[in-house]
Design a protein around this nucleic acid. Structure first.
Lengths: 340, 340
DNA sequence: TTGTAAGCGTTATCAA
DNA sequence: TTGATAACGCTTACAA
């Protein structure tokens, strides 16, 4: 009883062949309306639930999509997940979720776990430690549909969803310049990350356009340890030639900066202006409120899912061609970049 | 090629019977070391990956756990998930994740989807709309292991992990009283929620202990719409007989209060003090910084997972007896409840 | 120590 | 329109 009833048992109850019952439940044109009705009502009465594994085994697909993200405690990724879930659930898909915690080794392990087609497809954003991508290439060679979002992997020819990283960073930097900043620093997680590269490019180009010389030490690599980051940012802020503006390429480094500022005599925005890529909902409640570049997280998730569904539903029709789809971010100016 | 090699094919390659290969790969005592080595190395060479569905079908278990949470964009649930993932991954389990978005109908649908044993067990925190729990009872009757955390379902006799809701609310309220508050309001999501009931009890008892009469209109039910909540809290704050202290039973209502306060002439903590249950990492950076009751989210997740693993590994040994495990929260006092 | 065969619960092919 | 049978890929009695 604990395990429910099987198709065979249901068939026995109805004095029908299992194949007939199967077809009836799958609404096959071959079955008479009368039997269909009988079957369906008996199935409901006995609360018949098809065994998903038998079906997966037979049909060679699992109705499951795997999502790999670098971290869960991050509004951006949470919103993307919501978007993916919204669309995939409509189509009866389930979501296996994995977090790498920004650790390549964990990422490799997860990816290797997925080689057995437990999931029909993968949606992922790579860890900040990921530079060698052979584990991802292997998936692609196995013809496991995979698409990337945000932190993409350029070596793999598949669809990618990103925001306008270059443009947003350019605009963000330009905004700092317009607010009077002369010495602008760029905070980044890892130089390997696709988003780092693009955002850094935008930052550099905006400086150039304004005739500001990019100071090498102002392009600052941070690590995964928040305390260390606060330390090094504090040091940067206390240095002789300190920046008067910061473009942070990820939210957590802006937060670290807020903490760092409290270890100095500086005030935001008077002595230091800051704008960051972030989907934090409480950005407007911080002290001071934080200017942000907000990514279209929900849309990114929805679009990833839509594309995947299309691919999985009409296998030969749509290919996951090597195309990068850009959905623009939105800049919200708040106190942290005000002139006063 | 796209689908990998099967056990049968691997066996053929080795001139062995499939059963022998199966046993060798599962490190059975019956197989000689020599063949084991041969098999394992060939399996590696050909990158053999066992089909998880065949295995699940045969063994009647999926190595998968379903987690149902009310929302993803919430540090508490994200941290719980991290805890669950950490422990379950160690034991080779996969995680199916579902968000109800606080919607009972969605919760029912998800739960019904899980009746077919796609997952070996369920960990969940019920939606704030959940009052009728027949959909959950059905799961229990199907003998699908289920455990609850945070927002529990008292009707179902199984293990539950919660924090010391009553005690924390009591202490939080007492703290407000000690800081001079005389008219303390309590903000809650839904009165059906287990956490609401306990926290409200703690709040009331603390008032009583201090000889403060609980004002009925100060026990305020909020809804799921942030704008509406901001409106009604604003109204409360602008009323003749407004509260001078607030205990918020969930984070989002504290955030709504911060927004509401900005629509009034009041200042926190001078005119209104507030403390909330919250796992927000940036509570200390808000303006003013927010006093919080922080739940042991990671630990709750880990403990849920440990118990489940034990249950799934030694089925007859440990039972999911009706026991509620309490892990205490931690109160952090910040500016929002200061006297100045 | 290894091999043979049955069976898990479906669906698809072929036959009736 | 329905039924018998095989097959998906694996594990496990039972046999050798």
């Amino acid at each position: 009883m604990s395990n429910g009833i099987s198709l065979k048992e249901l068939a026995a109850e109805l004095n029908l062949a299992p194949s007939t019952v199967s077809r009836a439940l799958n609404d096959s044109y071959e079955i008479s309306e009368a039997t269909k009705k009988k079957v369906v009502s008996m199935a409901e009465k006995l609360n018949y639930q098809p065994n998903p594994f038998a079906r997966s085994l037979r049909e060679n697909k699992s109705k499951t999509i795997a999502v790999i993200i670098p971290e869960r405690i991050n509004n951006f990724f949470a919103q993307v997940m919501d978007g993916i879930e919204e669309v995939t659930h409509e189509h009866g898909f389930h979501l296996l979720v994995y977090s790498t915690h920004e650790d390549v080794e964990k990422e490799k392990k997860i990816v290797s776990l997925l080689q057995n087609r437990r999931a029909d497809a993968i949606v992922m954003s790579v860890s900040s430690q990921t530079s060698d991508v052979s584990h991802l290439t292997k998936l692609y060679e196995r013809e496991l549909p995979i698409i990337f979002f945000d932190r993409i992997c350029s070596e793999i020819p598949t669809t990618k969803f990103i925001t306008n990283d270059y443009e947003s960073a350019f605009q963000g930097t330009k905004h700092l310049i317009q607010q009077g900043c002369k010495k602008i620093a760029f905070l980044m997680l890892s130089k390997e990350l696709s988003i780092t590269k693009e955002r850094h490019r935008g930052y550099l180009d905006a400086l150039n356009e304004a005739g500001l010389a990019p100071e090498p030490t102002f392009s600052m690599h941070c690590c995964l340890n928040e305390e260390e980051n606060i330390q090094s940012i504090t040091q940067l802020l206390k240095s002789q030639n300190r920046p008067d503006g910061i473009l942070s390429s990820v939210e957590k480094l802006a937060i670290a900066t807020y903490h760092a500022v409290r270890k100095t005599d500086l005030r935001i925005p008077d002595d230091l202006k800051i704008i960051t890529f972030s989907n934090m909902s409480s950005a407007g409640l911080l002290s001071p409120s934080l200017s942000t570049i907000t990514q279209p997280a929900l849309t990114i998730g929805q679009e990833c899912a839509k594309l995947l569904i299309k691919k999985l539903t009409k296998p030969k029709h749509t290919d996951l061609i090597d195309q990068t789809i850009v959905i623009p971010s939105q800049i919200t100016i708040r106190e942290s970049t005000l002139v006063r």
